[in-house]
Amino acid sequence: MATIREVAQLADVSVTTVSHVINRTRFVSEETEKRVLSAMQELNYRPNTLARSLRRGETHTIGLIVPDSANPYFAEVARLMEKQAFKAAYSTILCNSDNDLEKERSYTEVLINKQVDGIIFMACGDDILSLEELVYRQIPSIVVDRFFAQVDVDSVVSDNFQGGYLATDHLINSRHTKIAIIRGPSNINPSARRFHGYLQALQDAGMTSEPDLIKSGDFHPQSGYQAAQELLKLPEPPDAIFACNDLMAIGALHAAYEAGINVPDELSIIGYDNIELAAFTQPALTTIAQPIHSLAELSVHLLLERIDHPDCPPKHEILSNQLITRSSTRRLQ
């Protein structure tokens, strides 16, 4: 492998001149620059970009911590963020915490040691220790899909309260009167906000929430399946189910199928996230679409802005959701 000294010898210049040509740090005559570039090409010389970046205090890499890479929602968001970062000439290191706080903290330390320029942080719960560590070490960071009032950092979230309200209101306007909910883990902010939106929509319609119609899941299909089984075995089962993500809604669809209950003729089911698979279930799943393209683009933009301007005031962006009506819900007569 060629060295910078060999390039300098072949071009008949100093090592310092070669360095200036590579890093554009000082004026070099056109003739000298051509000799250096020609020597680099002839020797197939490749500058050590990592070492050069470290000397400048930057690596042009960002870290991305997601809570569950097996969840299609987070997988798609991560893909869009990586694509956006790549456009800005940044590489992305993806870390999956598996909803494990210890793993989340470990990956936070790994990214700090890798000297990433910034971190996009999607926490696995309501623990803020990892985020506080980033703030303490002055690592440019942004929180996505979560909001922590205790830590003053940039954040981008979709309006989960509005989304929960929108889903429930759709079922109310479709004349359903026994609306169940399969909520996510209570320690996750989006899940709680969607649940509060559900409760508010019922209250605004003059309806009361029934404890028997409130079940909890873990955002995976099996938990939605089990929760729906319990709901459908009630003496007075629901005529509609709002599952707080699409994977649990898909589990609920399967439970209804096994119980011989027709969706949507006998039971309406609505999900949340609008993952790609939602359009291909049978029946196709009505759901709340999060603006993942805008969320990914804005998150990367704010992080890069934070890297360039570390002292600017934190920004908090809230994005609206959209109802996507498909075949799993219907208006009762």
Rank of each mutant, 00 (worst) to 15 (best):
L64S: 00
K215W: 00
Q282M: 11
V110K: 04
D127W: 03
D117Q: 14
I324R: 00
A228Y: 02
N187W: 09
Q333C: 05
K114N: 12
A240R: 05
I62A: 01
G197S: 10
K34G: 01
R26A: 15
A284L: 01
A51W: 06
T325M: 08
I142D: 05
P67E: 11
E102M: 07
V300I: 15
A180P: 02
V7T: 07
N187Y: 14
H196S: 13
P291Y: 08
S268C: 10
L303K: 01
S19G: 11
D154A: 08
D169A: 07
L213P: 02
L332Q: 14
L295Q: 15
A39R: 08
H316E: 10
H196I: 05
D159Y: 06
R35I: 02
N99P: 00
H170I: 12
P140K: 07
I275T: 15
E104S: 06
L54T: 09
L285T: 02
T108P: 03
F74K: 03
G163A: 10
R79D: 12
F219P: 00
I269V: 13
I172D: 07
L166F: 10
L295G: 06
D169Q: 15
Q203G: 02
S327D: 13
Q9W: 00
L131K: 06
R183E: 13
F27H: 14
F242M: 02
S130Q: 00
E42P: 00
S14A: 10
L54E: 11
F219R: 00
T168N: 08
Y136V: 09
D152K: 14
G251C: 07
L332W: 12
L54K: 09
I4N: 09
P291E: 13
D212Y: 02
N23M: 03
Q84S: 13
H170M: 13
V156E: 07
S209N: 13
D308L: 12
E31R: 11
P140T: 08
A249F: 09
V116N: 06
L134E: 01
A278F: 00
A149Y: 12
E132S: 06
L213E: 05
F161E: 12
T25H: 03
N23C: 04
N321F: 00
Q41G: 02
L267A: 09
A149K: 15
R26W: 06
I324A: 01
L319D: 04
M1C: 11
D311Y: 11
I292A: 06
T325D: 02
E305L: 14
T281F: 05
D239F: 03
E30F: 02
G224V: 05
Q9N: 14
M81R: 03
S155N: 13
H309F: 13
D159R: 06
I4D: 05
P185W: 04
L50V: 15
I275S: 03
T59C: 08
G163Y: 00
Q9K: 15
I324N: 03
A78N: 06
V135C: 06
M122V: 15
S130M: 01
F147S: 09
T329M: 05
A88I: 01
R46A: 12
F86T: 12
D127G: 04
E230Y: 03
I62F: 02
L50G: 10
T281D: 06
L43T: 08
A228W: 02
T17G: 03
M207A: 09
S69M: 14
D126E: 15
H176G: 09
M207N: 06
N274R: 04
